[in-house]
Design a protein around this nucleic acid. Structure first.
Lengths: 270, 270
DNA sequence: CTACTGTAATGGTCTTACCATTTTAAGGCA
DNA sequence: TGCCTTAAAATGGTAAGACCATTACAGTAG
């Protein structure tokens, strides 16, 4: 209650869009900081000179954007959130779910990303980070060899490795992108690890890569990175012959037998 | 500590979240195809046995997710949209916007990105795309030389160039990243272009790059890309002192004349 | 056949009311 | 005094009804 938020009355086609823009600007501009609370719905309604429904629609949009978090009860309301990459990851995952993107595209991107990160990590990663990377990679390899690892923890370890790796580049942009990609494609990675042979080879290669980095051998490191993606491509190639339709693996149980749906387009004006 | 499986709070306290899930499932499951229309708000209200406000909040969320597009009037309603990368880009851009980062980090990332895209664009870009790129780049260069261009149109052209460039890679992931970067940092680019010398040099370099790509000369192209970032770094080094602080005066004191506001504030619990 | 017009469908908005949840303060009992 | 119970207030969540604005389409006049 230190200062009063003053907003303009709404004017665009959909009023709630206008509210979203103004509140978004207030957040971006730092007029209201993460952790702080927006005025109550009824107060916003009064400030914007609009109905409460409009305010609520705006809040839903902001919430979906990941900008606010809404709690109920006294002292409840819309609290400004610190945005993280998870929203971007979700959107990406949603896009991929509907757009059957050839896994090759993802691999291609990740490879170029990994190559850049490798160079940077070698140059900028601290000794401690390099040792940590090596330790994690070897732990994962050994765990796999003793075959005492479940899928989820394995996948989690792989994720950790990648993030530490990205972190070693000492460039936050790489880490963000890596995070977004990882979250957006987590389902793909999990399926790949089902093959014990691939699992073994990949883990070994991770350890080799980490070793090369720890030893400051850039060409070796890059070579192993290339190896990783060669393995990945081979694995994907095998998969392709087995089961087509890479997009409907996880959630669609119903085959789309609705071929004559254009008629629903015409039902309601009849 | 071993596995941090991100469990979602299962029970949805908000009814609209439930509608979102169900409608989302219907879309993912193919029960409703892109281009088709959801039932009207009033019809949904009846089907879900809720108030119309709940339905509208759900629609706003789905709209924000990029899953539907709402039109008004007769034959209006919520039409299922084909999801594209722009939503994911928007989310990532929003994140980037709120995380100030040293320009050098961004430049570093963009350079590695551009280098990858350059190789791919050379290999995969159609002849038509390459000619289009060249045409756009030369138009921009000539427009700048004749100094008959305002900042905004210039910036828009630069954005177009970059997106076409990314599109030529024929890999949607690159396009996603590029779009996000463009959205998140367009204001920054605009400031850079204020220097006529930099503007000239950059535009010429763009034309050279496009020419090299059109001529299928990868090494020349990559060399020009490097040149671009050399220019950029020099420019940043000069203008290190400039700071962009978006000043939005939305929250100054001046509480509006709250004539009857306190009245409506208290109406419903009285 | 064209142009206008009216009508119905639909989203957009406002109002009012009430419920559910949560925090806080008041009160009461030991 | 100190802890527990209870009431009140603030706030989001939901419902119902009404009205306006926009749009497509059909019917009608010219």
């Amino acid at each position: 209650m230190t200062h009063m938020l003053t907003f303009q009355p709404a004017q665009t086609n959909r009023a709630c869009e206008d509210l979203v823009l103004q509140i978004e600007a207030a957040i971006s501009g730092g007029n209201i900081l993460p952790g702080e609370r927006l005025p109550s719905e009824r107060s916003l309604q009064a400030q914007f000179l609009t109905g409460r429904g409009v305010v609520r629609e705006a809040l839903r949009i902001l919430q979906q954007k990941g900008l606010i978090e809404v709690r109920k009860g006294a002292k409840g309301g819309a609290y400004v959130k610190e945005v993280d990459v998870s929203n971007a990851s979700e959107s990406l995952a949603l896009f991929l779910k509907q757009h059957p993107v050839d896994p090759e595209y993802l691999i291609e991107f990740r490879e170029s990303l990994d190559r850049s990160i490798t160079s940077l990590a070698l140059a900028r990663g601290t000794k401690a980070q390099k040792q940590q990377l090596l330790k994690l990679a070897e732990e994962m390899r050994d765990a796999i060899r003793s075959s005492e690892s479940d899928m989820s923890s394995l996948s989690e370890r792989d994720r950790e490795l990648n993030l530490l790796f990205a972190d070693m580049a000492h460039n936050p942009v790489y880490k963000w992108i890596m995070q977004a990609i990882q979250q957006g494609f987590s389902s793909y990675d999990l399926v790949l690890y089902l093959d014990p042979e691939y699992r073994e080879a990949t883990a070994s290669n991770w350890a080799d890569t980490a070793k090369a980095i720890a030893d400051n051998e850039p060409l070796r490191a890059l070579s192993f990175v290339g190896m990783h993606y060669a393995l990945l491509r081979r694995r994907i190639g095998e998969k392709k012959t087995l089961s087509l339709t890479p997009q409907t693996d996880l959630l669609s149980a119903t085959a789309p037998e609705t071929t004559a749906t254009s008629d629903s387009e015409k039902t309601d004006h009849a």
